[in-house]
Every structure is written in structure tokens, then in C-alpha cells.
Simulated scan of single mutants.
Amino acid sequence: MMKTFTLIFLVFLSFLLPLHAQVSLGLRGGYTVSATQIKNAQGYKSNSLGTNSQLKNLHADLIINVPVYRSFYFQPLVRYITKGAYLRPLPYKPGILVESANQLKLHYLEVPMNFVLKYPLPMGKIVIGAGPYVAYGLGGSYDLDLMYNGSVLSTDSHNIEFNYKDRGIAPGVQLNRFDAGANVAVGIEFNNLMVLGANLSRGYTNIDRTSSARITNSYFSVSLGILFDREDY
């Protein structure tokens, strides 16, 4: 899988290099609110965006603008992002010790591949678009609570390596390194080369590789940054 991801990235770069004269680049960073939805056969279901399970973190982007036709652009990003959530405790059974994951953090190198329309305004351009994304898991961590009769006895932190040696965030659950889904984006490119953007992302890949649960990621982010140049100058 790692070889496949590397091959896709190299093909992506080879496509951009001949277009260097037409392509503009930029950097931006911002604030992320994420959630990880988990549903298993026992009926456990975690919360999603808009609830108190949200994890707040930061992200960083490399922006690439590729003109396609008039106001239509291909605008991929290379994004470092932390996804995850505060997970609800597992249902407890009286008199039995239960291990339940608490805070989950997953670090990804993500490539959203958006197709956007840019509408000119006196102050710059409004940008509206959507597209798929693929993401490669770099690592992560989670807090595991030891619970008895609904009370937390102790909490230990564990690393996630995305391999078969992982203990898993819950009994029988191990995570896949790759994630994929779709996102929508809006933003403004100001005439002074500053950029402001927001996007909503929804994962459709089940990142539980054991099939004992369905686990998906989602997040909302806002970003601020700057373009190094403009492709229309």
C-alpha cells in the first residue's frame, strides 16, 4: 500500500512539473474540528461533528492552483492534519473491568483533490469547489481508560503505528493506515495574495481493518495563508 501511495504521489508531481509556468503555489494553516464515528456490532456508536466529542487541533497546507479552463481550476492540497475525537465510554457491565478508549488522535498526510470555480470580485476571487481526498496515516495515539462499574480507575496512553502489532483502540479493533473520502471547500483569494478558506470533509473508508466495527473520520477546518504568486498574472 505504501508503494501504491508513493507511486500516485510521484505521478501527481510529474503532472505538475510541465505546468510550472501556469501553476501558483501557496502556504496556509489553520484550525480543525474533527470527529471519528465508530459503530460496532454491540450497538456502540460515537458522536459526530457538532457534539462535545469533537477534537480541536491545527493543520498545515501546501496549496497548488492549476488552471484548466477560464475560471475552472484543479486545486489539490498537500495537508498535514490531526483527526480524531473524544470517544464515549463503552457500556459497562456491573462487577467487570472494561477497557475503553478515550481521546483518539490520528496524524495524516492528506491530499484533497478539489476542482474549483473562481469568481472575480473587486477585492479578489471567491473560490468554490469539491473533490475527493486520500490520506496516509503517519501515526497517532489514544488514551485507554480502565473502568469498573462506570468509574475510571486508571488511564494509559498508547501509540498507534497502523500495523498488526497494534493493540487497537478497543478489543478486536485495529486501524487501517489509509483513509479516503470527499470534501467541499469555499474561500477567498485576495488581490494582496492572502487566502482565506474553509472546508468540510467526510471520510467514506472504514479504517477498521478487522471488520469488527465501522470507523470513519470527518472534520471542519478554517485556514489562513498566502500565495507565492498568481497563475493569472
Results as ranks from 00 to 15, higher is better:
80 Y>G: 08
125 K>D: 10
195 V>K: 00
120 P>N: 10
123 M>E: 05
207 I>R: 01
175 L>F: 04
83 K>D: 09
45 K>F: 04
27 L>V: 14
92 Y>W: 14
91 P>W: 08
232 D>P: 00
63 I>R: 09
128 I>T: 14
47 N>L: 13
160 I>Y: 05
113 M>K: 01
141 S>Q: 12
174 Q>A: 13
231 E>H: 12
47 N>H: 08
113 M>T: 06
83 K>G: 02
105 K>F: 11
15 F>T: 01
139 G>F: 12
91 P>R: 10
177 R>L: 08
233 Y>N: 08
15 F>P: 02
190 F>T: 11
45 K>Y: 07
217 N>W: 05
162 F>V: 05
152 V>E: 01
191 N>C: 06
209 R>A: 04
42 Q>G: 15
98 V>F: 07
44 Y>I: 11
45 K>W: 06
3 K>P: 09
87 L>I: 05
197 G>C: 05
173 V>T: 10
68 V>H: 03
224 L>C: 04
205 T>Q: 06
33 V>C: 01
202 R>T: 12
203 G>A: 14
151 S>K: 08
183 N>M: 07
199 N>T: 14
24 S>N: 13
56 K>N: 06
12 F>V: 06
174 Q>W: 04
47 N>K: 13
139 G>R: 05
94 P>C: 03
44 Y>V: 09
219 Y>L: 06
216 T>I: 11
75 Q>P: 00
222 V>W: 02
15 F>Q: 00
37 Q>E: 15
184 V>W: 02
185 A>D: 08
159 N>S: 15
219 Y>W: 14
82 T>V: 14
92 Y>L: 03
146 L>R: 12
105 K>Q: 12
144 L>A: 10
78 V>E: 09
58 L>A: 11
174 Q>P: 01
41 A>I: 10
125 K>R: 13
83 K>M: 07
145 D>N: 14
80 Y>N: 04
96 I>A: 08
126 I>P: 00
182 A>V: 13
222 V>E: 05
157 S>K: 15
5 F>Y: 15
140 G>E: 00
5 F>M: 06
135 A>F: 00
114 N>D: 15
190 F>Y: 13
82 T>S: 11
1 M>G: 12
192 N>Y: 07
230 R>S: 15
173 V>P: 01
81 I>Q: 08
9 F>W: 09
174 Q>I: 06
61 D>A: 01
143 D>E: 14
229 D>K: 12
